[in-house]
Simulated assay, not measured.
Amino acid sequence: MADWNHPLDDPSADPFAIAAEAASDIHRLTGVERHDIAVTLGSGWGKAAELIGETVATIPATEVTGFSKPALEGHVGTLRSIVTPGGKNVLVIGARTHYYEGHGVRRVVHSVRTAAATGAATMVLTNGAGGIRETWKPGQPVLISDHLNLTADSPLEGATFIDLTDLYSARLRDLARTIDPSLDEGVYTQFRGPHYETPAEVQMAKAIGGHIVGMSTALEAIAARQAGMEILGFSLITNLAAGIQKTPLSHAEVIEAGREAEPVISDLLARVIGAL
């Protein structure tokens, strides 16, 4: 019998049963019976957790079945249960597994499936990403209206056919604009990573309808739709994409742009979540 190092690495394991076990762990560790909203905090969005409401509990993600320590600076590695002033319970996920880590799609989307298993009907996905539109500036938040999944992979297994029309909720995007009418939107393009895109790849994404390039979110959104969740996506434009920006890209630049934008975008996200 194989000795699997992680429960989701066993191909015979049921990922939804493991998500249910993780949700049970969250209930036990936080004392919160169910959550209404879940939010994954990408690079630059971390401070929003301080503004959403009153923290009920903060737990290391590694204490929850199926979760791993984040490999990337800018992700805090915790799960936090927060109650909003309106009485909604929010599960804040600061432990994202990226596709480029090579652990497989099940582990990439485990946090989303766990959120759904806790009862969350709304999934807010955030990231730091490169912008293709030259009018966008580093530090600008934009709504995700749709995506291009260029990972050549899917969280759906077997003959599982899920409609992705209106994957990113128009209703929730309209609600976000009641908080900030200046919010622009665009199509997010997920590449495999971890290398940044070449200028030619950025032009390819632009030619097929992309406006934002990054290494997360699309696979998570598909899993959230499979779970029946309503999805809102935000990208923080940390830099203009390769070939649009004339200087070399660096992760340090992404982190710095996130730090500078964090107070403004975190306040925006907290106000949007408060309106959900």
Rank of each mutant, 00 (worst) to 15 (best):
S24E: 15
S24I: 01
I26W: 01
H27N: 14
R28Y: 03
L29K: 02
T30V: 01
T30A: 04
G31L: 01
V32E: 06
R34C: 09
R34N: 08
H35W: 06
D36W: 03
I37L: 06
T40G: 13
T40A: 14
S43V: 00
S43C: 04
S43R: 01
G44N: 03
G44V: 02
G44Q: 05
W45P: 06
G53K: 12
G53R: 09
E54Y: 02
T55I: 10
T55K: 15
T55G: 11
T55N: 06
V56K: 14
V56F: 09
A57T: 10
I59A: 05
I59T: 05
A61S: 15
A61Q: 00
T62I: 14
E63P: 05
T65G: 06
G66C: 13
F67I: 10
S68R: 15
K69D: 12
K69E: 15
P70W: 02
E73Y: 09
H75V: 07
V76S: 15
G77W: 05
R80A: 12
R80P: 01
S81A: 15
S81Q: 04
I82G: 00
P85V: 04
P85D: 01
G86T: 13
G87V: 03
V90C: 08
L91Q: 07
V92Q: 12
G94V: 08
A95H: 05
H98Q: 11
H98E: 11
Y99L: 14
Y100V: 07
V105K: 07
V105C: 11
R107H: 12
R107M: 11
R107C: 02
R107Y: 10
V108G: 08
V109S: 10
V109D: 06
H110T: 12
S111K: 04
S111N: 12
R113W: 13
R113H: 14
R113D: 01
A115H: 08
A117Y: 05
G119A: 05
A121S: 15
T122I: 15
M123Q: 15
V124W: 14
T126W: 14
T126L: 08
N127F: 06
G128I: 07
G128C: 04
G128S: 15
G130V: 04
